[in-house]
Design a protein around this nucleic acid. Structure first.
Lengths: 212, 212, 212, 212
DNA sequence: GCCTAACCGAGACGGTACGTCGAGTCTTAAT
DNA sequence: ATTAAGACTCGACGTACCGTCTCGGTTAGGC
């Protein structure tokens, strides 16, 4: 499960990645994440990252095309490490047979993650960049979000097979009832996020707003 | 409803707003919006706005505290104008008695607005800024989104009174089923937005995912 | 006798010289000369000058087109100041009636000046630059050397009128017998320079190498 | 006469010159001279020379200590080749018994050489470097100029023996009347150089400026 | 109808960061 | 062991904007 390297500015003679310094790469990831946490994304500069990592600026420009690009890889790397560290099987979704309970459990974990300060600053920064820069946005979605979304889809399909979700429902849309309200509250500061809140989302979504 | 001017950096002798040049203000709004559309938010600079507006830099710094601040006011102004232009009663929500139909109608209009290129660039820029800058984010929510959200709340309460929505539902959460998925698809490029899509959202949300 | 300002890079909107900061100009001159003396010309950088002068780099680039250009003006300014300081009538050549004595006196003064450490580093640097960069070289000749050369020509013509120099001699060539050997020894380190040496030059040049 | 290799940075384990690649050396000389002619000395870089010569940078740093050092050897090599090529006995000075004629002939040849574009760029570059870098300057004088100067001294001494030059004249100073004015005009662009000019120098110098 | 304060266009200023280039060092593979 | 190749750290380049600070020149009210 290797991290895909992003392309540096095209037209340049591609650097030889076999000779790349692993030490520098790690130092750059660490410096970038630390700076984003400490001083915020806009005040995080390529020069600052280079200085903190004890690395020449050119070494950053050689392998990445922008600050956002560095941060994205750093964040992907962080996510990978955290997953490994947690010892968890990385990409699974609980299936106890109780759809509501499973969704609530996963969403509670997501809430906790969104509040982890190690994740908050860089993921906000990346999300903001993705809003404005479509190319980066799509990369983010593909690399960071899609794997999780696929798990939701799988779980919802299983629920359909078990007769707990109506068969005509499109799981790719249904999952947004759980993900999107949480995402918007977090991204746009439109409201607080909590375990109770996500529990409520699950209940509302499964049973609908209208009386039965 | 006059646009509230934002405070310039505190500690300064407050400028006398009665002597402010209306012509400059308009020129600055126009230049800011045009530049964001033409070159994108990150490449829009205060110097660029000043030059294009034929205005001194100080005139911008005197009345606004940041690029985002200028753009926010410019955008609010644009939104106001558009509303007036449309001749519409600005802040109402249809109530035909058919909740689903009313929601679908409003969401279709929202989809159309999100696709209007005049709106897209600046509102993306502001949204992105709001993700990262909490203070600005809250201002955006309060000034740009809250009025609309309140209309949703009002309509949902009416539906509750009419027995079309279960009484224990919190309308402030319920409205997110309509707003948030659309917002996320648009903000994060996670999927296409269309009238069919929002129609589906309304149906799913009202009747729930589970079989009845 | 104003210092001619050199042209910044053409094609740029010419800066308004009436608003130029005299303080910055002085500080830049001082820093440039000091650095050339202290660390040598090649290690003198625009950044270094700016930092030492407490000035933004742009302020240098706004008014000068290169390091050599800065240094040339700084040196011209220094020369001017020194002349004023010395209280001397700036552009005269002694005429006691004794050509040999007058030439020897002036050349002895020149030798002293060439050895003054305040002058040595910058003038070497400029001379070197002028060797390789013809445009700058011609400017140097015109602004720094020509006035002195003209004085030699004047004195030699007077000597011709007085019958002390053959009338068919071209003073513009003759003066090189006094100037050029000294210049070459100094520039190219081909030999030591001293009062005795220049005295000898005068004697040899006036009376020739061949027996009479 | 083998070219003495200059010392690389001291303190390093001296490379084994018996295993040196002659092909690389030649390629480096050619590349260095070509680049100086084509793009000028300041824009000639070690990287550029290495790339053009198809050589690793280290190969240059191993054997030379600086750009000027490379160029000096390259130029010495060029001078040697040219001399051989010309088939001439390398280090002689004509002695027809007519001092004036001999000097004029040699100076005319010098003028022609100074105008040869193959020589001009590199020798200007070296001269400029020598003005500012005393160590290199002295090396240049010793290796490039001294042999010629010695020939002048020899010829002048012969002339003294023949009674054509006054015995009390120091030939080491006298020769500067022929060399230095030409050198200065060429180096500092203070005037045009031509056969007529050098002829005039010889006449003026031999017979003096004063009436006889 | 004048005075005088504030605003205005303009843009120079001290700075920070940009993205690029080259210096000189170090590592790898191949000859 | 030298070589071609090129990644590395470092420092300077010249540019773009930042936010502050003068400059005249309008442009109001308050007298």
């Amino acid at each position: 499960m290797a991290v895909q390297k992003s392309q540096p500015a095209p037209g340049k003679p591609a650097p030889d990645s076999t000779r790349r310094s692993e030490k520098s790469r790690r130092a750059i990831y660490d410096a970038a994440l630390a700076l984003v946490v400490e001083v915020g994304y806009p005040k995080t500069t390529i020069e600052g990252i280079a200085a903190r990592a004890g690395v020449g600026k050119q070494t950053i420009y050689r392998w990445w095309s922008s600050k956002a690009d560095v941060l994205m890889e750093a964040f992907l790397d962080l996510a990978e490490q955290s997953t490994e560290e947690a010892g968890a099987v990385p990409y699974t979704f609980p299936d106890t047979g109780d759809l509501a309970a499973d969704l609530k459990a996963v969403l509670r974990a997501t809430v906790d993650e969104l509040r982890d300060p190690r994740f908050e600053a860089p993921s906000r920064a990346l999300a903001a960049e993705g809003v404005v820069n479509e190319q980066l946005g799509r990369e983010l979605v593909a690399k960071l979000m899609q794997p999780s979304l696929d798990l939701y889809i799988g779980r919802l399909r299983a629920a359909q097979d078990a007769g707990q979700v109506r068969p005509e429902i499109d799981p790719r849309i249904a999952l947004e009832f759980f993900i999107s309200p949480l995402a918007q509250r977090w991204l746009q500061h439109t409201g607080p996020i909590s375990h109770e809140y996500t529990d409520t989302l699950v209940d509302y979504a499964l049973h609908g707003l209208a009386p039965r």
